[in-house]
């Protein structure tokens, strides 16, 4: 039993980068939790669970026997990409880990490394650019299309470097996308229209993935031949494999858009509650104060 567990949890292709990144993120978050608890503003259990399950999902997708199955079965590969691009980053961003992790960074590091890098103009400009909702949505769907072009997919499944670039790209883009979708600056009506714009983007992303998934599902011939050449993890009809993969590119990602929309809806209604709360307070102050938020 234990031996089997060790077998399944051992990284198929060990990557020090993945191990170090995941461990650093977990340590910073844990340290941040302690700091905020000391300050009397402990992080809620839901947020903690969301963060660590997202991180664990990404780590296990990359560094376990699951990675072997993903290399040798198209539909498992699609499941892996779903975890890396949609579910894992979504859970992490949902927990809003930024402030907690910032607390976890030792003060000396923050002054020495994080702040200068954060002030670096080109990086800020690039970040602002990819955080524009439309750009984030195009990148998110574009990346899916790119790696699923049969010729590109073929090389990614054979070349270790391209395979890693694909997986890293999915995680990083996933974090950027969900950050752009679920986090909004500004107040009042500005904030509302920003949320509605993201609502629209999630819908467009849904359409993009639907077209791609349906294309794969309904395609009459084999698109991805590499799995036959290198062997499938267990015997399965190649067309069944492809169709399952098409469905996994189509339905669960679209479900994630729906869940994302629900999260936005909740934020939106809460925002309106806050705004109307403010309006009530102002109304109490007199009719002249109301003019300020209407204008």
């Amino acid at each position: 039993m234990v031996r089997l567990l060790i077998f399944y949890l051992t990284p198929w292709e060990f990557s020090p980068t993945v191990a170090v990144c995941c461990l650093t993120a977990a340590l910073l978050y844990a340290r941040g939790m302690r700091q905020t608890a000391h300050a009397g503003e402990a992080v809620g259990l839901g947020r903690v669970l969301s963060f660590f399950s997202g991180l664990a999902l990404i780590y296990l997708s990359l560094q376990s026997y699951f990675d072997f199955l993903s290399q040798h079965m198209f539909w498992v590969h699609r499941l892996q990409q779903l975890f890396l691009h949609h579910v894992g980053p979504f859970l992490i961003i949902l927990s809003a880990p930024g402030p907690v992790m910032a607390q976890g960074i030792p003060a000396r590091w923050r002054a020495r490394w994080i702040e200068p890098v954060g002030r670096w103009r080109p990086l800020r400009a690039a970040y602002r650019f990819v955080q524009q909702p439309f750009v984030a949505a195009v990148l998110f769907v574009g990346l899916l299309y790119f790696w699923l072009i049969p010729a590109i997919h073929f090389t990614a499944m054979l070349d270790v470097d391209r395979y890693r670039a694909m997986n890293w790209g999915m995680v990083i883009d996933g974090l950027l996308f969900w950050q752009a979708m679920l986090t909004v600056q500004g107040v009042g009506r500005q904030r509302e229209s920003a949320y509605l714009l993201r609502f629209l983007m999630l819908f467009l992303v849904m359409i993009g993935q639907l077209l791609l998934g349906a294309y794969i599902f309904f395609h009459g011939t084999l698109l991805y031949t590499v799995y036959a050449l290198c062997g499938r993890a267990w015997p399965i009809n190649p067309m069944t494999d492809q169709q399952l993969g098409g469905l996994l590119t189509w339905i669960p990602p679209d479900m994630m858009s729906v869940i994302g929309s629900l999260v936005i809806l909740r934020k939106l209604t809460r925002n309106q509650a806050v705004t109307s709360g403010v309006a009530r307070d102002l109304r109490a102050e007199g009719p002249w104060a109301l003019g300020e938020i209407d204008g």
């Binding site: 049969p150 467009l204 077209l211």
Partner: peptide, 21 residues
């Protein structure tokens, strides 16, 4: 308009590069 252009580009890319080398 921008979205339509992006989607069209995506489809062309997908269809144009359908077969591996």
């Amino acid at each position: 308009r921008r979205i339509t252009a992006a989607l069209l580009c995506g489809m062309v890319l997908l269809l144009g590069a359908c077969q591996p080398h």
